[in-house]
Lab assay of single mutants.
Amino acid sequence: MTEYKLVVVGAGGVGKSALTIQLIQNHFVDEYDPTIEDSYRKQVVIDGETCLLDILDTAGQEEYSAMRDQYMRTGEGFLCVFAINNTKSFEDIHHYREQIKRVKDSEDVPMVLVGNKCDLPSRTVDTKQAQDLARSYGIPFIETSAKTRQGVDDAFYTLVREIRKHKEKMSKDGKKKKKKSKTKCVIM
């Protein structure tokens, strides 16, 4: 069974824990209790493949930012979460993405942009803004509501699919490099 290491990042209060708990335990946590770091595991079937999701729910508070490099190193894919009623959390996505790329030393890291709290009427981040940002990053965008469960499975499952595509691409690139290195030079 394939294991996928997913990391949920975003500013404090955007609903990272609520999304994760909704996926794992099928219930909505409405009281806000700032996370330092929590880890969850769940076995699911995605596109006919049974897999184990190892999900790291991270601290959004700035005082825990020193811990970010460590979990970013171990993560295979990242859910970059903002709240649709919090423009600052949307603007912060850029910083999370840049930090992930720096730590992973790669421009090509599996990510999904997630606009959470889409059940709320007080939207300050337009869907088109988020779609445009995701398009500019070359990553999928999904709106979710941890409260109603809308888009929750889709967000995590899409990230797994992005990781699969990335692994497939990397193995193809690896095979191309191996083929090239088999060419021999004969000096007579």
Rank of each mutant, 00 (worst) to 15 (best):
V29N: 08
V109H: 03
N86R: 07
D57N: 00
V109T: 10
S17E: 02
L23Q: 13
T58D: 00
K178Y: 10
R68H: 15
R73K: 07
Q22T: 08
E49L: 03
T183C: 03
P110T: 07
T87G: 09
K88E: 15
T144K: 01
A155H: 01
F28V: 00
G60K: 01
E162G: 07
G15P: 02
E98Y: 08
I21K: 13
I100N: 04
Q25L: 07
P34C: 01
T35V: 00
D154R: 08
V152M: 10
M188I: 07
Y32K: 00
G10H: 06
D154H: 08
F82E: 05
V9Q: 08
V114K: 04
I163V: 07
I46F: 04
Q61S: 13
L19I: 10
K5H: 12
K169Y: 14
I139G: 05
E37W: 00
V14L: 12
Y4A: 05
I46H: 04
S65G: 10
K117P: 05
D173P: 09
D108E: 10
L19H: 03
L159K: 04
M72T: 13
D69R: 03
V160H: 05
L19F: 07
E49I: 04
V109S: 08
D57I: 00
R68K: 06
G115K: 02
A146S: 01
R97V: 15
A155I: 06
K104C: 15
K42P: 00
Y71D: 15
V152T: 11
Q70V: 00
G48N: 11
T158G: 10
E37S: 00
M188N: 14
T35E: 00
I84V: 12
V186Y: 06
Q70S: 01
Y157S: 11
E76I: 08
K176G: 08
P121R: 11
V9E: 03
T74F: 15
D47L: 03
I84R: 11
V9H: 14
V109E: 05
F90G: 05
L52V: 08
S106R: 09
D105G: 13
E49Y: 08
S122C: 11
P110K: 01
T20Y: 00
K167Y: 10
I46E: 09
A66P: 07
T20D: 14
I21R: 12
K88H: 09
T50K: 02
K175S: 06
G138C: 14
H27T: 07
K42W: 01
S181G: 15
S106H: 10
T50V: 14
K101I: 13
A134S: 12
S39T: 02
V81W: 04
L120A: 11
S17W: 00
G13N: 11
L53G: 02
H166K: 08
K101L: 09
G13E: 15
G48Y: 08
K104V: 12
S39G: 15
K42M: 15
R164M: 12
M170D: 07
R123I: 09
P110E: 01
N116M: 15
S181W: 06
Q22C: 03
Y137N: 12
K175V: 08
L23S: 15
I84H: 14
V8D: 08
G15A: 10
A66H: 06
R68Y: 15
V45L: 05
K128G: 10
D30T: 09
Y137M: 14
K172L: 07
D108W: 03
E31G: 02
T74M: 14
F78A: 01
K16Y: 03
D173C: 12
K182G: 11
V186W: 11
Y96R: 02
K177D: 06
M188F: 05
K117Y: 15
A83T: 13
Y137Q: 06
G151L: 13
N116W: 04
G48A: 09
F156W: 05
L159C: 09
M188R: 15
S65L: 11
G13V: 14
D126V: 08
K117G: 14
Q61V: 14
A83P: 12
D69S: 05
S17H: 01
D30E: 10
S17L: 02
V125Y: 11
E98M: 06
D105E: 09
L79V: 12
G115V: 11
Q129P: 13
K117H: 14
L19C: 12
F156D: 10
I24Q: 14
S145R: 10
D47T: 05
I55C: 07
F28N: 00
T58R: 01
G10F: 03
L52N: 04
Q131A: 09
S136P: 12
S122L: 08
T127C: 09
R73P: 02
D54S: 01
K104A: 14
L159E: 14
K180G: 06
Y40Q: 02
N86E: 12
L120P: 11
R41V: 05
L133I: 10
T124I: 09
E62F: 09
D69G: 02
M188Y: 14
F28A: 00
L52M: 06
V125E: 11
I139N: 07
T35Q: 00
C51V: 05
L52T: 05
E162M: 05
V160T: 08
N26Q: 11
Q70T: 00
V45G: 06
G75T: 04
L6H: 02
G60W: 04
R123D: 13
E3V: 04
G13H: 13
C80S: 04
V81L: 12
L113N: 01
Q70Y: 00
L52I: 09
V9P: 10
D47A: 05
L53R: 01
K176M: 11
F82C: 11
M170G: 12
S122V: 08
D38L: 00
Y71F: 10
S39N: 04
T50W: 01
D153L: 06
K16I: 00
S39V: 06
I21E: 05
P34M: 03
Y32V: 00
V109K: 01
D38R: 00
Y157A: 11
K177G: 12
K117V: 15
V160L: 06
Y4V: 10
K16C: 02
E63F: 02
R135E: 12
D126T: 09
Q150W: 08
G12A: 02
L52R: 07
R73C: 08
P110Y: 01
K167M: 13
L113E: 05
D47G: 06
G12M: 04
V45D: 03
K178V: 11
F90L: 06
D153P: 07
A11Q: 06
L79Y: 15
Y4P: 15
E162C: 05
R164Q: 04
I24W: 10
K165N: 11
N116I: 07
Q25Y: 05
T50H: 03
V160P: 05
K182R: 09
S17A: 00
G75R: 03
Y40K: 01
Y137L: 13
I24D: 06
Q22H: 12
H27A: 08
A59S: 13
I55G: 00
R102I: 08
K180N: 05
T87A: 12
L120G: 14
S136N: 08
V125P: 09
G48V: 08
Q61F: 15
V9M: 15
K180L: 08
L52C: 05
Y71C: 15
V45I: 05
S136R: 07
A11D: 14
E31Y: 06
K5P: 15
A130W: 12
E107R: 10
Q70R: 00
V44T: 06
Q25A: 06
Y157E: 12
Y64R: 00
D154A: 09
P121N: 14
E107I: 11
F156Q: 12
E49A: 08
F156L: 08
L52G: 04
A18R: 02
D57H: 00
E49Q: 10
K5V: 04
K104W: 15
K128T: 08
D30K: 05
G12T: 04
T2L: 04
G12P: 02
S65N: 12
D119A: 12
D132N: 09
M67W: 15
S181R: 13
K180W: 02
V81T: 10
K101S: 10
I24M: 04
E49R: 08
V160D: 03
V7K: 00
D132S: 09
A59N: 15
L113F: 12
L113I: 13
T20W: 00
L6A: 07
V9K: 00
A155K: 04
E31H: 02
V81K: 03
T50D: 01
Y96V: 10
C118V: 12
D30F: 07
E168G: 14
Y40V: 02
A18Y: 00
R102Y: 05
V14N: 08
G10P: 02
R164A: 01
Y64M: 15
T2V: 07
